[in-house]
Amino acid sequence: MSQVQWLRSENFQRMLWPLMALVGILLFNFFFTPGFFHIEIKDGRFFGSLVDIANRAAPVMLLAIGMTLVFATGGVDLSVGAVMAISGAIAATVIRPDYVKGVLEYGEVQSLFLVLSIPLFFSLLAGLWNGLLVAVIGIQPIIATLILMVAGRGIAQLITQGQIVVFIHEPFQYIGSGFLFGLPFPIILVLLTFTVTYLLTRRTGLGLFIEAIGANSIASRFMGIRERMITLSVYIFSGFCAGLAGLIVCADIKAADANNAGLFLELDAIAAVIIGGTMWGGRFTVFGSIVGTLIIQSLTTTILTRGVAPEVTLVFKAFVIILVALIQSEKFRQLFSNRMAGEKVRTS
């Protein structure tokens, strides 16, 4: 593709608005927030607002990566926040199995492998449950995943018996607050997940199949695409991403809080996916969802650093989401250009 063609191409157009929104927010900070772009290197580690934003956004980015694929198949996964809570609760329980029985001293230090693999296994299982309901039984995705959204938090509470399970586990805490190659480990995890997802969808036929299923599942089936298998896998993957995000949060605060871990984050993830330019049933861009998450997070940080009350943050957030979503919508742009065209006709 020549450069001009690429600039006109659908993919680029889709990315244009989110990127511009992000640049806009960053520019605003460049002028009005002193030291916003300042990055310090201490002990070979990067520090600064930008790193901080990316680090804070990491869990939602993971959710958004999984959500993007689900969205592209024409579904939605409302349960990701609850799955985060479950995953954290299981991790904490694996570390301190007797905590809920009131035994407060530590036993042996659990192997990191178990602390990671058991919660992730159950996250996959949660995804499988959603996938079965949607792809095999045929329940509407909103309703199917709503079940686990509500029940999941209850399950997490059962696991922790309603307590906040605090723990110390150095290797596990590294997941949430360690550094690798100078960057916070959660960012590395996101980069890794993103790369794997990208390669798996765009360097194979999978991405195209997902888009085909989302855009027309009957036609896809008639072409021999395994639409059930793929839909199922996509929900399982979303569950996995949520589990990973849950581990990051849990490891970062060194506690499992079944009530609050991942609360409402499914909404942030959905917003990020929409802002990023993924269609509900059709074209998706995982990179766009990452940008979408960064927009939301940098906006939140900006507002907070400007000393605006946190309650107002939500309103701002809503406003920006509506704005970007509107610009993304083809209908809206058409309406706009129709108006302009109408003017032209009338004045000529």
């Binding site: 888009e211 027309n216 009957i218 036609a219 896809s220 008639f222």
Partner: peptide, 8 residues
Amino acid sequence: EEGIIEDL
């Protein structure tokens, strides 16, 4: 309904 995938 069964043939083309419009958005692709």
